[in-house]
């Protein structure tokens, strides 16, 4: 069962036991993790599930598609090299993921 580690901007952390096949966004939303909104439900429509992915975890995911890349330019908090939309980060068995939630989403 993959674990997701969510760190808030002020440093507090929540660890959720997730299901492979779910996204980092849906795992956060269904468990009420603060700061990840995911208003469109994961259809690349809203850019409200922005996270900073831990550098060591970048290798587990394909790079952003063109649409995700475009949307990342328009997030409420500044884009960094590790920025991803968490609805596009699909969890796999045996891979734990660490993300930091930005200050603002919408």
């Amino acid at each position: 069962m993959p674990k997701v580690f969510y760190t808030q901007p002020h440093g507090s952390e929540r660890v959720i036991d997730a299901a492979a096949g779910d996204s980092v966004m849906s795992t956060a939303v269904t468990n009420g993790v603060t700061g990840i909104v995911g208003q469109c439900g994961g259809t690349l429509s809203c850019a409200t599930c922005h996270v900073y992915l831990a550098e060591d975890d970048l290798k587990y995911f394909d790079p952003p598609t063109e649409d995700e890349d475009d949307l990342l330019d328009c997030t409420a908090s500044d884009r960094e090299d590790t920025s991803r939309l968490s609805c596009q980060l699909i969890l796999r068995e045996g891979v734990d993921v660490h993300v930091t939630v930005p200050d603002e989403q919408a």
Binding site: S45, A47, D67, D70, L71, D73
Partner: peptide, 8 residues
């Protein structure tokens, strides 16, 4: 089909 324009 222009999500980035929309968000902008």
């Amino acid at each position: 089909n222009a999500p980035a324009d929309f968000v902008a």
